[in-house]
Design a binder for these strands. Structure first.
Length: 816
RNA sequence: GCCGGGAUGGCGGAACUGGUAGACGCGCCGGAUUCAAAAUCCGGUUUCCGAGAGGAAGUGGGGGUUCGAUUCCCCCUCCCGGCACCA
């Protein structure tokens, strides 16, 4: 009987060692090659869930692997501590958000430690602490000075019963989640950050980011949505102001048969004053939430305003409509409609009996019927007078020139990207450092008065921010003129905190600067890991903030994350684990039953990191079984007595075979983890090697030596995934040093060479046989061997061989 | 609706650059061990035909390129993520 595997003892022992040796606390050592490994920090929601365990484990495996490559690794952890759930908990249970949050942080930190993650806890950050958010308040005031922030009216979801602003998430089927009242769109003044000032840089740099997945780069490109078009004006009958629209298809201009404005547009409001039907329609448009998904999937509706614009080229009258699919916040709040050559315009025109005019024909001369089907491709202009026969580019330029020469329009670059609205009408966030004075308007809080500290002892009711009812917070003298003034009670969007925390880990205790010289050592982040749901917002805001910090002279770095890995969700029964669905598996329970290593191993083995992971209780048991087999294999070997030194020159062919497998696996797993982030196949390869060791029944001196080498390799290579058991087994194998300080093994090239290789033989692409040939066999020798195969003979017999394809080391295909 | 991604045995997945489809694990079947069970160990396991040797089909559906396609191209279906106030 060998020593049994007791994970709770093995894991406590390893963790005690790391704790006492301060294994994961790092300094800024200029002589060492740094590696900054980071996970998107969690929201402290209460308990760790499997989604957390997955991403934290992926990141930990990378950190530990890089350490074994000799890198000086920083892996910090912290808390995205502001946000709505704390307010919801406060409303429900009467606990102040701060207290609730700090409690959760304590619980989650303990759970993380139980999982054995290699964190430098000396750098822990919680974004709800004034020492942290004072610096984003400070940066905001710097941006204010530079004109990178501004205030304008913008739309929110308004709950008319609770008299409060709702997040999109709090709107369910157009109604407030607590009041059930129909939500209204309402405009209020809010602060914006000018991310559009960096649009071109954010877009262009994507081409020079090889460490990011193409899918994320494509999403960001599309989100920024740079387009080149023409801005042009239509005169409106009886109006002084012309109606300005932007189009990327000036070539279709002669096909404009109507125009549409947003419900909030001044022309619509004016028409509504004189017409009850229009007023009713506008009312209806406002009674919806503000999310784009809702607007785009809504039935497209509109009513005519009874007024016309004048077509700038033909002088024709073009009817004006108000429509629910035009947004005031996009461009000018007005669009020109070309039913013949735009899908949405075509459907709207069909529905309302508006004329559909063909002005583009396919370049290949084929006939189309524009009344039957819309034609959106670029082609040749028709029914367009002097522009007839031109292709897209020629027409674009000719028409753009015409407008620029007549002064009624101009070429312009447009972005889909909008400036970032950072104001939130919520309590549990970082206060926006602004003071409103009747004389001086909005005044940023001077640096000496920062931070603006959020009062933590409050009573949250859910109806508006409690800050509004705290005169000691609100009433302050104006920093400019000293008169009585009022403090801003809105707080920052929590994305503001998460847009720069990664840099602050380098110097979390710096109280004189947002970032000090330590940031120059650690940033940028070498490996960033997190959910694909952050592909656009969080990652784009972080790229923006990094540049704002750069332009403020705080860093030379422009891109915050060199390599990005986006991990998939954890599912059970095909659905995301959530309390609502009742399919949650508690990590704590599993760790108690099997230990942290089993949970970590299953997470890494069950699916590739970018894909969703289907939870399986049986699969977890399988991982546990493997660790037990692993443990007993090493213990049996060790308990059989000491091992002799390996002599590679004195091995039998079976011994050579196992040694070949060992070094082939070392080579494969290094590539799997280091280059491919393919942890599931790395685990599979470890299992294969261990299976080979267990099948290898050779108790001679050299037999045991080859076995010993294989077992040490498995211990080293599994250690990033299951660090505790490997820590124990490394000691058991007679090693004096701690495994955490060991280097990744090297594959011995001489052990990888093979004398013979097996080739597959196909006839017409179908597998018909296999042949063994010397590794260095010439092409004609391979061909001869392939054609000589008995089964291959049956399929080529009596047929003419047209061609023989030889793929060295792989296959032979005989084409007959 | 728009943008991005995914679909392979009973299940999770593997096949990396167009070259043996199903590695590894789960489950299941059979056996060993046991008074019995659990645990453990050994063998089998895509489907169909065949005693076997072997053959045929097969990677969501339909088409195409190629000596050869899970992999590349076109069209479609379903599922997932995001859509600017969930984080």
């Amino acid at each position: 009987m060998t020593t049994p595997y007791k994970p709770e003892i093995v894991e406590a022992d390893a963790q005690r060692y790391w704790q006492e040796a301060r294994s994961f606390v790092v300094d800024e050592d200029p002589d060492k090659d740094k590696f900054y490994c980071l996970t998107m920090f969690p929201y402290p929601s209460g308990k760790l869930h499997m989604g957390h365990v997955r991403v934290l484990t992926i990141s930990d495996v990378i950190a530990r692997y890089q350490r074994m490559q000799g890198k000086h690794v920083l892996q910090p952890m912290g808390w995205d501590a502001f946000g709505m759930p704390a307010e919801n908990a406060a409303i429900k249970h009467g606990v102040p958000p701060a207290k609730w949050t700090y409690q959760n942080i304590g619980e989650m930190r303990a759970q993380m430690d139980r999982l054995g993650y290699a964190y430098d806890w000396s750098r822990e950050i919680a974004t709800c602490r004034p020492e942290y958010y004072r610096w984003e308040q400070w940066l905001f005031t710097k941006m204010f000075e530079k004109g990178l922030v501004y205030r304008k009216n913008s739309v929110v979801n308004w709950d008319p019963v609770d008299q409060t602003v709702l997040a999109n998430e709090q709107v369910i089927d157009g109604r407030g989640w607590r009041s059930d009242a129909l939500v209204e769109r309402r405009e209020i003044p809010q602060w914006f950050m000018k991310i559009t000032a960096y649009a071109d840089e954010l877009l262009d740099e994507l081409d020079r980011m090889p460490g990011w997945p193409d899918s994320v780069k494509t999403m960001q490109r599309n989100w920024i949505g740079r387009s080149e078009g023409v801005e042009l004006s239509f005169e409106v009958a009886d109006e002084d102001e012309p109606l300005t629209v932007y189009t990327t298809r000036p070539d279709t201009l002669l096909g404009v048969t109507y125009m549409a404005v947003a419900a909030e547009h001044p022309l619509a409001k004016k028409a509504a004053a004189a017409n009850a039907d229009i007023a009713a329609f506008i009312e209806e448009c406002v009674r919806t939430d503000a999310s784009e998904a809702t607007l785009e999937t809504m039935e497209k509706k509109g009513v005519p305003l009874g007024i016309s614009a004048i077509h700038p080229l033909t002088g024709e009258e073009v009817p004006l409509w108000v429509a629910n699919f035009v947004l005031m916040s996009y461009g000018t709040g007005a669009v020109m409609a070309v039913p013949g050559h735009d899908e949405r315009d075509w459907e709207f025109a069909k529905k309302h009996g508006i004329e559909i005019r063909q002005v583009i024909a396919p370049s290949d001369g084929s006939e189309i019927d524009i009344q039957e089907a819309v034609y959106v491709d670029k082609g040749v202009l028709v029914n367009s007078g002097q522009w007839d026969g031109m292709d897209y580019d020629t027409a674009f330029n000719a028409i753009a020139d015409h407008f620029e020469q007549t002064g009624r329009g101009r070429r312009t670059v447009n972005y889909r990207l909008r400036d970032w609205g950072v104001s939130r009408q919520r309590y549990w966030g970082a206060p926006i450092p602004i003071i409103y004075c009747d004389d001086c308007d909005a005044v940023p809080v001077p640096e000496k008065d920062l931070p603006v500290v959020l009062p933590e002892d409050v009573h949250v009711t859910g109806a508006g921010s409690p800050l509004k009812n705290m005169p000691e917070f609100v009433n302050v003298p104006c920093p400019q003129c000293g008169k009585d003034a009022r403090r801003e009670t809105d707080t920052f969007d929590t994305f503001v905190e998460s847009s720069w925390y990664f840099a602050r880990y380098a110097c979390p205790d710096s109280d004189s600067k947002m970032l000090d010289e330590r940031a120059a050592y650690w940033t940028p982040v070498d490996q960033y890991t997190g959910g694909i749901e952050h592909a656009i917002l969080h990652l784009l805001y972080s790229r923006f903030f990094q540049r704002v910090m750069r332009d403020e002279g705080l860093t030379d770095v422009s891109e915050p994350f060199t390599n990005l890995l986006t991990q998939g969700m954890v599912l059970k029964d095909g659905a995301k684990m959530s309390k609502n669905k009742g399919n949650v598996v508690d990590p704590q329970e599993l760790i108690g039953k099997y230990g942290a290593d089993t949970v970590r191993l299953f997470m890494m083995f069950a699916a590739p990191p970018e894909q969703s992971l289907e939870w399986s209780d049986e699969g977890v048991q399988g991982s546990y079984r493997f660790l037990k087999r692993f443990w007993h294999a090493v213990m049996e070997h060790v308990e059989a007595g000491p091992t002799a030194t390996l002599d590679p020159g004195a091995l039998s062919s079976e011994q050579k075979g196992l040694r070949h497998k060992t070094h082939q696996t070392i080579s494969k797993i290094g590539d799997d983890i280091g280059r491919r982030s393919s942890f599931n196949t790395a685990v599979a390869a470890s299992m294969e090697l261990l299976n080979a060791v267990n099948r290898f029944d050779d108790t001679t001196e050299q037999g045991r030596a080859v076995q010993h080498e294989a077992l040490e390799a498995v211990v080293l290579m599994l250690s990033p995934m299951t660090p505790h058991i490997c820590h124990a087994l490394w000691k058991a194998l007679g090693r004096e040093t701690a495994l955490v300080d060991e280097r990744w093994p090297d594959a011995d090239e001489s052990a990888l060479e093979l004398d013979t290789v097996e080739l597959v033989v196909q006839v017409n692409g179908k597998l018909r046989g296999r042949v063994s040939v010397p590794a260095d066999a010439a092409r004609d020798v391979i061909e001869e061997a392939a054609l000589a195969d008995e089964n291959v003979q049956r399929f080529i017999d009596g047929k003419a061989i047209r061609k023989v394809i030889v793929v060295p080391g792989r296959l032979v295909n005989v084409v007959v």
